[in-house]
Amino acid sequence: MQPFALEQGRDIADTIRRGRMPGTDYIAGGTDLVQLLKDDVRRPRRLVDLEGLDLDQITVTPQGLRLGAMTRMSEVADHPAVIRDYPVISQALLASAAPQIRNLGTIGGNLLQRTRCTYFRDTASPCNKRSPGTGCAAIEGVHRTHAIFGGSRQCIATHASDLAVALVALDAVVHLSGPNGARDVRLTELHLMPNDHPDIETVLHPGELILAVSVPAGAWTRRSSYLKVRDRASFEFALTSAAVALDIQDGKIRAARVAAGGVGTKPWRLPAVEQALVGAPATTATWQRGGRLATAGAMPLRDNRFKVRLLRATVTRALEQVGGEA
């Protein structure tokens, strides 16, 4: 770990003033950043601590759910209103990491966690995301866990967050504050595909800070679920996952929200699946059709080809779990 200064702002404005300085990283829960520092993947000169900024409220209103960026993953997962009205969020969080990490990790930090691509985290390996222009070691290397959606010739690293998959499905919006003021960004727009610049992962400006995430209420949020498939029974990132929320009335699907994890270079919403579901009967055939449509456009490589079948099965199963067997 290279040396850095550790600072704390007086308030949000002061924090952002510090955060916009070159070479500065914010530190929230630190569960990912501290790993990156130890592995020498990040070399900030300064860390600005976000603890104590009063960004840890959970607010539930008829309009929706608002999660402060510094809310701990475990608090959100255990919140009765989240469990009742937004089960997919609670489930995605409980499927993440381990209890100890969820007690540290924050909602904002979770959304901005870096990829688990092992080449990215090993400074002796080429990686365009970590060291632009050095090449992607994964494309012709060991890439069983890598993305089948959204990859480029420069990068196929999977976005690792489970929470982001659930939130992307539920049309979440992130509330930002930065040197140029406040703005809201849809979570689907927050993360960027790697294209030619895998090192640039989000639309955030230097110093811009996530203050909170909002999830609009909808008839579908209560009937929602997160399914995660992995080699080990727990404490592992997803091979594939699916977040599903359905509004079903009289056996017919009125609205559908579906996203996939473990498969995309960013949290992967599946609009084609949603479109096919709306208006369809809540039947096994529909769920299977949804599963089949989930992998349209997938671009697997040698070792992650299995994710195509696996994602179909994952989405089908998740739809069935939420929508019921018929």
């Binding site: 990283d25 929230a28 924050t106 400074t123 811009e208």
Partner: peptide, 15 residues
Amino acid sequence: DTAATGGAAAIAGSG
């Protein structure tokens, strides 16, 4: 190269 890399960490914007 590593040192020259931007990118988001924690709740930071990479620009």
